[in-house]
Design a protein around this nucleic acid. Structure first.
Ligand SMILES: [Mn+2]
Ligand SMILES: [Mn+2]
Ligand SMILES: [Zn+2]
Ligand SMILES: [Zn+2]
Lengths: 133, 133
DNA sequence: CCGTTTTTAGTAATGATTACTATTTTTAAA
DNA sequence: TTTAAAAATAGTAATCATTACTAAAAACGG
């Protein structure tokens, strides 16, 4: 019930916070093993889930097969590339208006929360499709 | 490449169209087996995927473990109950405004599409939590 | 009909995640 | 510091949803 301070949890969190790539659990497993070669995949999953439940990190349940994790717990949005699967942060002033409207919609519906996600080709995949790479 | 007319496909589609519950593939498998006891789960998955690819039905890649299917191909939104997992259609006039803004946001981001989903307790689970059931 | 294409049932395989368990580590109190 | 309880771990097994494979059957188009 209470968090212990373990090297596993510390390294998982610090590696996640270094990344802007929204890694999956096994992406992190690969990265963390360079510091802690003995760590098990189950430990990575367990710690990520615990930290997400505690609000220390975010678990992104985007469409697609694997869940992704985000060290940035502020409310923000993501775009997934349908070609390579990359997930990028999205910024746009108008999203504040969307949030305001949806906040009213939540009240009217008696709903608790909303989720928005975008799909679109990332820079690299755009270049590739244009034959530039 | 071309669709053959099979009883399996016909029954899957007609049963899906009767439902407003956004069933999973195995929900439909259970239902369809009453008409076609020999059908296999793989056939249900394959036909649902094919029909979704052809735009005859919708595949909902909501967060959560299983994919769900919708006989209604019009653009509309859904709310998932975090307690029982039920998925219901959502209607609200203000969503048109959200769509308009997001359509501009798509252009500005160079994105292709957006997805919105809501979370909120359904009627039954609200009653249950209020101790009325 | 008849050769070709598509689909099927049944089963095996896959991939992501979760569960189990004996052992180790951490914690907090004595 | 010692120590008993609580939490976490590595390693492994199990689960769940989905996809892949395959030989046989059905649908198609002429
Ligand atoms: Mn992010
Ligand atoms: Mn619907
Ligand atoms: Zn890409
Ligand atoms: Zn409910």
């Amino acid at each position: 019930m209470k968090f212990s301070r373990t090297s596993q949890r510390r390294v998982i969190l610090s590696e996640l916070r270094k990344l802007k790539s929204h890694p999956t659990a096994d992406d992190l497993y690969t990265i963390v093993r360079e510091k802690l070669p003995q760590i098990s995949l189950g430990t990575v999953y367990r710690n990520l889930d615990q930290m997400a439940a505690a609000g220390i990190i975010q678990k992104l349940e985007l469409s697609g097969r694997q869940k992704r994790f985000d060290g940035n717990v502020e409310k923000h949005y993501h775009m997934r590339c349908p070609h390579c699967g990359a997930v990028k942060d999205v910024e746009n002033e108008r999203l504040a208006d969307v949030e305001n409207i949806l906040s009213d919609v939540l009240d009217e519906l008696g709903a608790d929360s909303f989720w928005i996600e975008f799909t679109g080709h990332c820079k690299d995949c755009n270049k590739a499709e244009a034959g530039l790479v």
